[in-house]
Design a protein around this nucleic acid. Structure first.
Lengths: 317, 317
DNA sequence: TGGCTTATACTTATCCTGAGCATAACCGAT
DNA sequence: ATCGGTTATGCTCAGGATAAGTATAAGCCA
């Protein structure tokens, strides 16, 4: 290794600061929420310090200090450097290491300026459960078309529109709920977000959706995308559920995260055939309609199976 | 945000150094290779510096400086802090940000101490294409069983063995090629790797497989795992292929990465039905047996489709 | 009791996957 | 020219998974 570093002008001059940022998610009454601070304009975060034994313990310390909420399930999201965007070429590099955490919502304790905010406040265009509100759909499409048209050459214009159509599911294309980050970045590039204007884009019209400080809305987009992808192949939804739940509650949680509706009967079949849950024997109270059986997550599956599916035609011989 | 930091004891004392590490992969003649330096004992790496405009440009600069090889396709892998393992509680935190890169192998230029090493040298137990060599299989199983038995209580022993059986596909379980990192970590925990002994494990017997300095073998495991997962749902294999190739060459590359054999006819069907490739019209020369058609990657797919499949029973209404 | 709501069971057509058989096209040795 | 070896390529077939919808059950309330 020593040899590997020869070309480096090493020294304290290259020190950086590393920030830990948390996207902490819960779902309550069919609405996905994220833990926010600073008047709902930022995610819980803080610098990685000496005292922290690891990145995760550092993150846990910050989240607890800022929100009073202990972290349960956590996974790393992405790491990025903040310069270029901030524009200050002389400041030391700053790195953000982001994490996704899953819990159940509970009261925010006294003395904390934290609270739970609905994530669709920040990404109204991501909620397709009831179809996109006509007004928003119209605004989006027209602004994006205008942006496409503002390219210099005809071929660039076509290129831009194709990208728009794919990421937003326009022109007969399917909506793909996982492209959260791509949509955010496209909107940023098109100058349609307050963050873009803040960072120096020519002040165009801006689109509905609450901004956040720094790169936090981008980090949130990364977290939503990861979660939407992950619920499809790992049983992580259950981190967001109470100990006992009905299949409809489970379905509503999934729909809240995915931003789309699922087919009820087929959803049940999927859950049951994978043996992810077991009946508790109890029946849900306080419901309209026929009462539903209560289920609990079969924690055994975590031990029994490692992953689900392959997409390669493996050979058995 | 300012308010969010109140609890912090800020100051230069919390500076860290960030290292960029590359897992640069190529496949030649059906063998996966990685770019190594320092006598094949380390991955290309170097500190993130002032001069670097972004993490990726920093990485590219280091890899080119150390190996002469330009980076093509790159994606971020994982970020981790090095302390605890290194044990030095007083040194400033050091963070490693790792990346996966894909290319085609070519000559390493004069004056570079870099070269391409087969990745199965570091992970002999990961190559299941010809079935695991009987000797290695026997060694592994017996050492792991011994480790399981060395737990204190009977229930802990069972727990350990269940973990072993799942990650290594023992006791009638299926081998899962994606669990590269889990297997590495289990072997580390069991004290069966030179790295574990180096880091202070009681010096037990050690298992075949070349170690690397620092956390580099762990990073490599992360890279292999990511790549094995990714080839199943994104057309990244083509980054490793020449411009024109036969379907068998493509298959051999996939098999090399996955460490398993695939069913030939079904593999072709899969590739063709997804319309990932198109015929060039040419025919492969210099072959035994019936000559094969040459294909090229249809770059169009990247634009046409964003992702492949969902696992949710989406509703159409 | 009828109407509303949600739960749950089944059916049907289609598509995807794993596995294998059969044939085609080339080479080299006899 | 033919046979055997080798790889390429086409095709079939059964079983399982999926998408979509129909039908029935079991509560509540007016």
């Amino acid at each position: 290794m020593a040899g590997a570093r020869k070309a480096s002008k090493t020294g304290a001059a290259n020190a950086t600061t590393a920030d830990l940022v948390a996207v902490l998610v819960a779902v309550t009454d069919g609405e996905p929420k994220i833990m926010t601070i600073a008047n709902a304009s930022a995610l819980p975060s803080g610098p990685f310090e000496f005292a922290h034994r690891s990145l995760q313990t550092g993150l846990r310390a910050w989240v607890e200090a800022q929100t009073g909420h202990p972290l349960g399930y956590v996974e790393q999201l992405y790491t990025f450097a903040d310069r270029g965007r901030a524009g200050d070429a002389k400041s030391p590099h700053s790195i953000s290491i982001s994490y996704l955490g899953l819990t159940r919502e509970d009261k925010v304790g006294q003395g904390f300026e934290a609270h739970w905010s609905g994530w669709y406040e920040y990404f109204p265009w991501e909620d397709h459960r009831a179809g996109l509100p006509a007004a928003l759909a119209k605004t989006l499409a027209s602004r994006l078309r205008a942006w496409s048209k503002s390219a210099d050459t005809a071929s660039l214009q076509r290129e831009r529109w194709q990208r728009v159509a794919i990421t937003f599911g326009l022109d007969e294309r399917e909506w793909n709920e996982e492209l959260v980050l791509q949509r955010y970045e496209l909107l940023y590039e098109a100058g349609l977000l307050p963050e873009a204007v803040r960072d120096g884009a020519s002040a165009a019209v801006v689109i509905p959706g609450r901004p956040m400080s720094g790169d936090h809305r981008r980090i949130l987009a990364t977290g939503i995308a990861r979660l939407r992808a992950k619920i499809k192949y790992r049983p992580v939804v259950f981190e967001l559920m109470p100990a006992e739940f009905t299949l409809l509650q489970l379905q509503r949680t999934v729909e809240a995260l995915a931003g789309r509706l699922v087919h009820k009967q087929n959803f049940r079949r999927l859950i049951e055939q994978q043996q992810l849950v077991e009946e508790t024997g109890a029946i849900a109270a306080d419901t309209v309609g026929r009462p539903a059986k209560l289920f609990r997550f079969r924690h055994g599956v975590l031990a029994e199976r490692a992953v689900v599916g392959t997409k390669l035609p493996l050979s058995r011989t």
